[in-house]
Write a protein that binds this DNA or RNA. Sequence first.
DNA 1: ACCTGAACACCGTTCAAGT
DNA 2: ACCTGAACACCGTTCAAGT
Lengths: 183, 183
Amino acid sequence: MARQATPASGTSGERLSRERILETATGLVVQHGLEALSMRRLAHELDVWPMSLYRYFRDKDELVAALADSAAQRIPSPDAAAPWREQMHALLDPARAAIERYPSSLSPQANGTAAGHVRTAGLAILQRAGLDEANASRAWQALLAYTAGAAAFSLTTADFDYGLGRLLDGLESTLRDTAAARP
Amino acid sequence: MARQATPASGTSGERLSRERILETATGLVVQHGLEALSMRRLAHELDVWPMSLYRYFRDKDELVAALADSAAQRIPSPDAAAPWREQMHALLDPARAAIERYPSSLSPQANGTAAGHVRTAGLAILQRAGLDEANASRAWQALLAYTAGAAAFSLTTADFDYGLGRLLDGLESTLRDTAAARP
DNA sequence: ACCTGAACACCGTTCAAGT
DNA sequence: ACCTGAACACCGTTCAAGT
């Protein structure tokens, strides 16, 4: 990648844009981790003055939120025909990867649209499994919390699957109890 | 608290020490959160030059690790006479509070002695409940991951309890399966 | 040998000055 | 009106100089 000691506006044909900034930022994060992402380093990478970035993002928080949101966007919605436990696994496995890269990406505080999509998909799976709205909501929070903790602790896939299995077992047993209570 | 624009060594009778540094640092974290803790601010609060802290802690990481460890140290070991689910709840509830303040305090990467004590207590509860060593270890990882996620998402106590209850249900059902398989 | 504090190499962001 | 880049208010930490 061509870079200069002093950024110059005339050298590169590609103009700055939100997309180009996000692409380069993603590259930085993939290579060196989120903690290595700084406005100054990102600007340097783009061959641009640091302040130029602020024409496209209000501040660093907004930029990181955009990165997190686009990572969450790439989480596919599981095949609705599969058993609900498999669907949940298919949803949470990539969710774990997204959280590992951007810890805030799926937090309840994240107000991005993608976090909402994942939540909607999760709630739909739980409701189709038989949980009512209130319990589906609490169950989703629990599943996401477990997934976030597994990401924070870098659990191996086998260990992640074990805990997820036990949590799904526990949720499933509330379904059986409800079914048994019904005539 | 008396403070001066320029730190002076002669004014206060109390000499610097690891304990005094940790106390003041804890006060800062309690009042303003971990993200507000800086070596410079802490030194200012102690009426001392920033570099003086480095005589007691190799670097900021070591200081934060010491804070996290002492927070984990304050987690009591539950009453061994209580039912195992109650014991686990009594252990993880303060663990959640410790992680909320110091996210790294109980992570598997934390090499402090206190994190080890909590882990030992957790494993003992699970083994007394009937899990073998391998499963107790995986179950502990899952319980701690869930607790860390709940801390990161600032789940309410009711929501934390719901998810923990389901996870414990799931673990308990593996005990029943094992018992049923035995003659 | 010990301690100081200036200095280095970074941050995110504001804002006056220039075009 | 737009953009620049100097400047501000911070970081953690090194290290030469002083006692």
